[in-house]
Design a binder for these strands. Structure first.
Length: 192
DNA sequence: CAGTGGATGCTCT
DNA sequence: GAGCATCCACTGT
């Protein structure tokens, strides 16, 4: 007889479905990197039909992880300065991903304050570049599996109300409402 | 608060 | 050589 326990982590098959299902389902899930992080409050979806996606024009050295299997990280450098973290979705070849834009800093706050050089809770992890700096995510994490250290992804503890809106900072496909936020959270990167 | 411009490096044409 | 899935400092109300 087996004892059923709540899953400790999101399994790899959580990501092996449409990015449009995965993205809203990630709101409220806790993301930790080496024990530092908190509940995700803002993400954006990028799918294969999306001109704004890095994978839209096919595989390249940079976007290689997006064409790999679901449940892995895709990390790229933004504007030559910042790192951005994506979670790869769908089966191999579909090349879709969720950009993690903000989370509520609950775990390892002192570490984040040190890395970010600010003690303002609101500015620790609100924005993809800030979040990666606070969690010390770099290009070295590109392609790593999300269900093994240093990553830890925990399911929602409670139900969350998810709001949709237009994505931030794009020049292409700006009308697609593929940004998902925890309704009312003050840790999202913008209200728009 | 809103708006602007600079930093900075890599990717792809 | 252009264009970024960004952030910060600085300006002016």
């Amino acid at each position: 007889m087996s004892v059923r326990t709540a899953p400790a982590q999101l399994r790899r098959d959580f990501f092996a479905r449409s990015v449009h299902d995965v993205a809203p389902a990630l709101i409220g899930c806790t993301l930790l990197v080496n024990g530092v992080g908190g509940p995700i409050v803002e993400v954006e979806a990028y799918d294969p039909t999306d001109p704004a996606s890095h994978a839209f024009r096919g595989p390249t050295p940079r976007n290689r992880a997006m064409f790999g299997s679901a449940g892995h990280a895709y990390v790229y450098r933004s504007y030559g300065i910042h790192w951005c973290l994506n979670l790869v979705c769908d089966a191999a070849g579909h090349a879709s991903a969720v950009l993690v834009r903000a989370l509520q800093p609950t775990h390892g706050r002192e570490e984040m304050v040190k890395r970010r050089s600010t003690s303002q809770q609101r500015l620790l992890c609100s924005g993809p570049g800030r979040l990666c700096q606070a969690l010390a995510i770099t290009g070295a994490y590109d392609g790593l599996a999300l269900d093994a250290p240093p990553f830890e992804l925990l399911p929602r503890a409670e139900p969350v109300e998810v709001a949709t809106s237009r994505r931030i900072g794009l020049t292409k496909a700006v009308d697609r409402e593929w940004r998902y936020t925890a309704a009312g959270s003050r840790f999202v990167s913008r209200t728009r």
